[in-house]
Amino acid sequence: MVTKPQNVLIMRDVACAGYVAGGNASFFTKYDKTHTLERARTALQERLSFSDDVGAKYGSMLAFPCTEQQFSANQGLDTVMSVTSRLLPWEVTGVNARNHSSFPGGEQVFRQYNQMLGLDSVHYGEDMKAAENQDFISQGSTNNATCFLGPHRKFDPFTSNFMSLVPGQGHFGPDAIPGVSSSHIQTIALFPYTFTTQLQSRFRCAEQRIGLTCTKHTRGRTPAGAGARASRSRPRATAWSRSSWRSTRRWSTASARRAAPAAAAARAPAAAATGHPAFPLSPGFVAFALLLARLGRARRGSVARRLRSQLGWCVCACLVWALAHSVGVRA
């Protein structure tokens, strides 16, 4: 029971829980390799009412003619537009009130598309009272009309990969990273990796000048539509976080391994300098030389007989050898 409502804040839409529809790259107008307005009108209603299965493939995109002059005009299109009859706040008031100047092409073009596509019918059946009051829950669906500039890549002759990113200025902000599948995150998600991958692919195939290979990248493809959201949202949630990346960079040890023999060679003079002579001057070598001298002065006979007669000297020589060798290795 809340007794002080001003102490309570509902933070709306703070995290994505799953994909439903509307985010693919298919045009509403397209059907069997042809583009018609009649098809677009039908496909719009099919998408908004989910007339087919919830997980079915629907169209998502519309295209409109425009000019650079509309972007640079004061009353034109900048970073936000409305695709339906619902106007933006600054289009309602002012000298050109009720003029849909943010629509690509302007007011007359909007009227034509509105007539042919039925854009005003997008908002039919909405709970207007809930929309006006910005209620959290509305009776029936509420369809969007406002579009912000989204992240996309376009041709740029001055970059090494001939593509540059136009950051999105809309709902997800300029830092949103497109492409979050766990199987693709190292090849698509982050921009430096994306560019590296595209660059390599571009040189493999001459016709793919602007990273075309990415469009053919189907490994690990996930099913489309709302039916896939249960299986898709979970791997994305882990791959999206930075904890899935290695916390420290692993440097290559190849250079260290190459330098190891040189370091061992430099160790011998250093050992001599610290009082542990190298092999030719070691005490073990001296003991071995004395043993050979004793054997030479022993009685004539086989080597075995000579060794048996000098058994004590042999044991002493081996002990000295082992002791000297162990001291030398530690040094």
Binding site: R12, D13, V14, A15, C16, A17, G18, Y19, V20, A21, G22, G23, R47, L48, S60, M61, L62, A63, F64, P65, C66, T67, E68, Q70, F71, L77, M81, V83, T84, P104, N143, N144, A145, C147, G150, R229, S233
Partner: peptide, 14 residues
């Protein structure tokens, strides 16, 4: 210019 719009991107939101 050609403006490509994707107006109905729908997600489940927390």
């Amino acid at each position: 210019r050609i403006v490509v719009a994707r107006p109905f991107i729908e997600h489940l939101m927390h």
